[in-house]
């Protein structure tokens, strides 16, 4: 039984690490802000789920698992929200700059 749990943890950790690394690489290498944000927010959620679930398999049914579940829940709520707020603010700022440029040209 514990062999299966270990195996599951390994697989989840592997997936999680890979996703986090790909996301970070995307944040570093992609050319514009919005593509970078895309790389970060897409990989982050699944990567977080994978890593935290992997730990949960190791922890078994304890208080630690409940805490991990809470952490996962809060991260899944806040991380997309801040990505959204960030993208929204950046988009508004860009639009404002563009309209200002148009106004200046007139």
């Amino acid at each position: 039984m514990s062999l299966f749990l270990d195996l599951g943890s390994w697989v989840l950790f592997g997936i999680g690490s890979l996703l986090l690394f790909i996301g970070a690489l995307g944040v570093l290498r992609l050319p514009t802000l919005f593509t970078r944000m895309h790389a970060a927010s897409l990989t982050e959620s699944l990567g977080t789920i994978a890593v935290l679930t992997g730990i949960m398999l190791q922890a078994g049914l304890t208080l630690a698992t409940m805490k991990l579940l809470a952490i996962l829940l809060f991260l899944l709520l806040t991380s997309p929200t801040s990505s959204y707020a960030l993208a929204n603010a950046a988009l508004l700022a860009r639009n404002r700059d563009q309209t200002r440029e148009q106004a200046d040209r007139k």
């Binding site: 802000l33 944000m37 970060a40 991260l75 960030l86």
Partner: peptide, 13 residues
């Protein structure tokens, strides 16, 4: 915004 993105990502990590 890039910096904020990085800080946010760093927090999750």
């Amino acid at each position: 915004y890039d910096r904020i993105l990085a800080v946010n990502m760093f927090g999750t990590k």
